[in-house]
Amino acid sequence: SPEVQIAILTEQINNLNEHLRVHKKDHHSRRGLLKMVGKRRRLLAYLRNKDVARYREIVEKLG
């Protein structure tokens, strides 16, 4: 489901952010981070168009 995919991506994004705080010059990982953020944004847009209630619920849960 989109909610699960968004939750997994959010966790991976948070982990990668911590990694990049330590390894500032790791541009390869930064590119992966940007791809993940874009994918999460697309999934959220899809969910917002399909079911606003589910969209609001996941945004509330994940912050």
Score class of each variant (00 low, 15 high):
1 S>L: 07
1 S>A: 08
2 P>N: 03
2 P>L: 15
2 P>T: 13
2 P>E: 13
3 E>L: 06
3 E>K: 02
4 V>K: 11
4 V>A: 13
4 V>E: 13
5 Q>I: 12
5 Q>T: 06
5 Q>D: 07
5 Q>F: 06
6 I>A: 00
6 I>G: 00
7 A>H: 07
7 A>G: 06
7 A>E: 09
8 I>W: 15
8 I>G: 03
8 I>E: 09
8 I>L: 12
8 I>P: 01
8 I>D: 06
8 I>R: 09
9 L>K: 00
9 L>R: 01
9 L>D: 00
10 T>D: 02
10 T>N: 05
10 T>R: 01
10 T>G: 01
11 E>Q: 12
11 E>I: 11
11 E>C: 13
12 Q>I: 13
12 Q>W: 12
12 Q>N: 07
12 Q>H: 12
12 Q>L: 12
12 Q>P: 01
13 I>F: 02
13 I>N: 00
13 I>V: 01
13 I>T: 00
13 I>K: 02
13 I>Y: 00
13 I>D: 00
14 N>L: 08
14 N>M: 08
15 N>V: 13
16 L>N: 01
16 L>D: 01
17 N>T: 13
17 N>V: 15
17 N>R: 15
17 N>I: 15
17 N>Y: 15
17 N>K: 15
18 E>T: 06
19 H>Q: 06
20 L>R: 02
20 L>N: 03
21 R>V: 04
21 R>A: 09
21 R>I: 05
21 R>E: 05
21 R>Y: 04
22 V>P: 03
22 V>R: 09
22 V>E: 08
22 V>C: 13
22 V>F: 11
23 H>C: 09
23 H>V: 03
23 H>W: 06
23 H>E: 04
23 H>R: 02
23 H>K: 05
23 H>Y: 07
24 K>L: 09
25 K>A: 10
25 K>N: 15
25 K>M: 11
26 D>R: 04
27 H>Q: 11
27 H>G: 06
27 H>E: 10
27 H>W: 13
27 H>V: 08
27 H>D: 08
27 H>C: 11
28 H>E: 13
28 H>M: 10
28 H>K: 14
28 H>I: 12
28 H>L: 10
28 H>Y: 07
29 S>E: 04
29 S>N: 05
29 S>I: 14
30 R>K: 08
30 R>W: 14
30 R>G: 03
30 R>D: 05
30 R>I: 12
31 R>T: 08
31 R>E: 11
31 R>W: 06
31 R>P: 04
31 R>L: 13
32 G>Q: 15
32 G>W: 15
32 G>C: 15
33 L>E: 00
33 L>R: 03
33 L>H: 03
33 L>M: 07
34 L>S: 07
34 L>V: 09
34 L>H: 09
35 K>R: 12
35 K>A: 14
36 M>I: 08
36 M>N: 02
36 M>H: 03
36 M>L: 15
37 V>R: 06
37 V>E: 07
37 V>H: 07
37 V>D: 02
37 V>K: 08
37 V>C: 11
37 V>S: 02
37 V>I: 13
38 G>R: 14
38 G>H: 13
38 G>F: 12
38 G>C: 14
39 K>L: 14
39 K>S: 05
39 K>A: 12
39 K>D: 11
40 R>N: 01
40 R>V: 14
40 R>K: 03
40 R>S: 02
40 R>E: 01
41 R>I: 09
41 R>L: 13
41 R>A: 14
42 R>K: 13
42 R>A: 11
42 R>F: 07
42 R>D: 07
43 L>W: 04
43 L>K: 01
43 L>I: 06
43 L>P: 00
44 L>R: 01
44 L>C: 06
44 L>V: 01
44 L>W: 03
45 A>D: 10
45 A>G: 06
46 Y>M: 12
46 Y>K: 08
47 L>G: 00
47 L>E: 00
47 L>K: 00
47 L>M: 04
48 R>F: 13
48 R>P: 00
48 R>A: 08
49 N>I: 13
49 N>A: 13
49 N>T: 12
50 K>D: 05
50 K>C: 12
50 K>A: 10
50 K>M: 14
50 K>V: 15
51 D>G: 02
51 D>K: 02
51 D>N: 07
51 D>P: 00
52 V>H: 10
52 V>M: 12
52 V>W: 13
52 V>K: 10
53 A>R: 10
53 A>G: 09
53 A>E: 14
54 R>C: 07
55 Y>D: 01
55 Y>P: 01
55 Y>Q: 01
55 Y>H: 03
55 Y>C: 03
55 Y>F: 09
55 Y>I: 02
56 R>W: 14
56 R>N: 13
56 R>S: 06
57 E>T: 04
57 E>F: 04
57 E>W: 05
57 E>P: 00
57 E>D: 08
57 E>H: 05
58 I>H: 01
58 I>S: 04
58 I>Q: 03
58 I>M: 07
58 I>V: 09
58 I>N: 01
58 I>L: 10
59 V>H: 02
60 E>C: 09
60 E>F: 07
60 E>D: 08
60 E>P: 02
60 E>Y: 06
61 K>T: 11
61 K>R: 08
61 K>M: 13
61 K>S: 12
61 K>E: 07
61 K>V: 10
61 K>G: 10
62 L>I: 11
62 L>R: 02
62 L>G: 02
62 L>M: 09
63 G>S: 12
63 G>Y: 14
63 G>F: 15
